[in-house]
Write a protein that binds this DNA or RNA. Structure first.
Length: 417
RNA sequence: GUGGGUGUAGUUCAAUGGCAGAGCACUGGAUUGUGGUUCCAGGCGUUGUGGGUUCGAGCCCCAUCACCCACCCCA
């Protein structure tokens, strides 16, 4: 083999396409039941869109973006996430002025240059929801409810919702300072990664996996104590709406979003059985993003989930997913004349939407029967010299082995009813 | 970007430095037109790739690529 698939990517082969189709269909159905409409944006955008919105020094921008120049020297990037493009489309198409098209969902591939691992790929598929245009805490709960309804529709059991509020920009800033204050005395004892985090993203100090760093966490200040009046009230309301919707959650002050544009509500869905990459979806409110990329100041909230991790979680719980479709009918024709007489039947079946199979390379009767069997078709239609003379067909049920002779009309009648 | 593990037939896996094998799957057959079970036969291959050590390398060494696991990050 001279050519190989790029690192961190994979092919979805026919035997797996059924389950992908299924999880996408269910997401569509659930999102639409909440009144959300699909939006599809390009897989690449101006690189600056992501640099601005995700934050210049976020990991995504710093080392994970696939950037390229086009023939005229313009700088583009394969999208590493879905929110910024949707917001760009919202602003660019003046969707705020065109009625109520502000409940949006999307699905598609995202790209991040990252070391592949279980549940982590360089091209991966996400689904997401964006609600644009209100700071009402009801919508925070609604967006979370969509994801919960989706997981429920799929039958996923062992999943945990964790929520937090990171406050507005000024709360967050105050909290970062408080954290730095607290951690300053321990700085020499922290792991090298945490020493960096202390400067770049203090709240990441809270979810370090090194044990010697974790001991400081217990007495660290909580973001929730650094929310201003409005932000605290907002978070209280979000929880009230979740409670009223019957959605169970855990408040985890360590929940942090990776991208810079998040404010207030942050949440994550965690499946512990998945190992290191156990977060199957995450999202939050991003009231600052839209004005940041040139729209008028507009609050919004959304989330994104990863299909790969979702499928892993479903498989971990042995939830049955669709496989490949099996033929209903397998046609067996012995001899050239029979073959030609079989074709009208074959095409009529297919015109009625019936999956009917036939293989002209198998010539002997035995080989065709074997092929019919391994195709796992429900029925075989047999046309040999005898039937040809009589002008009828044998319809054989391959499960029960029962068979009967039928005219072409009766045969079609029977199979299409 | 860092660390550990693994690369042999389509697939799952064997082979002390000394002739590359087994199961499953696949294809054909077991006398006239009936599949699954059984039996027989058949291709299974540049041992991931490139170097090196050796009389001799699937096995030892180096490099490289890919996958798996973890760090990091996140979906």
């Amino acid at each position: 083999m001279d050519y190989r698939i790029p690192r961190g990517t994979y092919d979805i082969l026919p035997e797996n396409s059924g389950k992908w189709q299924y999880v996408k269909d269910v997401f569509r159905r659930v999102a639409e039941s909440f009144g959300y409409f699909e939006i599809t944006t390009p897989v690449f955008e101006m690189a600056e869109l992501f640099e601005r919105s995700s934050g210049e020094n976020s990991d995504v921008v710093q080392k994970e973006m696939y950037r390229f120049m086009d023939q005229k020297g313009r700088s583009f990037a394969l999208r590493p996430e879905g929110t910024a493009p949707v917001v760009r489309a919202y602003v660019e198409n003046h969707m705020d002025k065109s009625g109520s098209r502000n409940k949006l969902y999307y699905m598609g591939p995202m790209f991040r240059y990252d070391r592949p691992q279980a549940g982590r790929y360089r091209q991966f598929y996400q689904y997401g929801i964006e609600f644009i245009g209100s700071n009402h805490p009801y919508y925070d709960a609604e967006v979370i409810a969509i994801e919960m309804a989706y997981l429920k529709a799929l039958g996923l059991q062992n999943v945990r919702l964790e929520i937090n509020s990171v406050g507005c920009a000024s709360c967050a800033k105050e909290y970062d300072l408080a954290l730095q204050d607290y951690y300053r005395q321990f700085l020499p004892e922290l792991c090298p990664d945490c020493q960096k985090r202390y400067e770049t993203k203090p709240r990441r100090l809270l979810d370090c996996k090194v044990k010697t760093c974790q001991v400081f966490r217990t007495d660290a200040p909580s973001q929730l104590d650094y929310l201003d009046e409005d932000c605290r009230e907002h978070f209280t309301q979000v929880r009230a709406y979740l409670d009223a919707s019957g959605i169970k959650y855990l408040v985890n002050p360590a929940i942090v979003r990776g991208l810079d544009y998040y404010t207030n509500t942050a949440f994550e869905l965690i499946v512990d059985a998945l190992g290191a990459q156990k977060s199957i979806a995450g999202g939050g409110r991003y009231n600052a993003l839209i004005s940041q990329i040139g729209g008028k100041d507009t609050p919004a909230i959304g989330f994104a989930g990863g299909f790969e991790r979702l499928l892993l979680a479903l498989e971990k719980e042995s939830i049955p997913l669709p496989g490949i479709t099996l033929p209903k009918v397998y046609c067996i024709a012995i001899g050239d004349e029979a073959q030609m007489s079989m074709l009208p039947i074959l095409s009529k079946l297919r015109q009625s939407g019936i999956y009917a199979d036939y293989n002209p390379d198998k010539t002997s009767f035995k080989a065709q029967m074997k092929a019919a069997d391994s195709s796992r078709a429900e029925f075989a239609i047999i046309l040999g010299e005898d039937e040809l003379k009589q002008g009828d067909f044998i319809l054989k049920n391959l499960m029960t082995s029962e068979q009967e002779r039928l005219s072409a009309e009766d045969l079609l009648q029977r199979l299409t009813q």
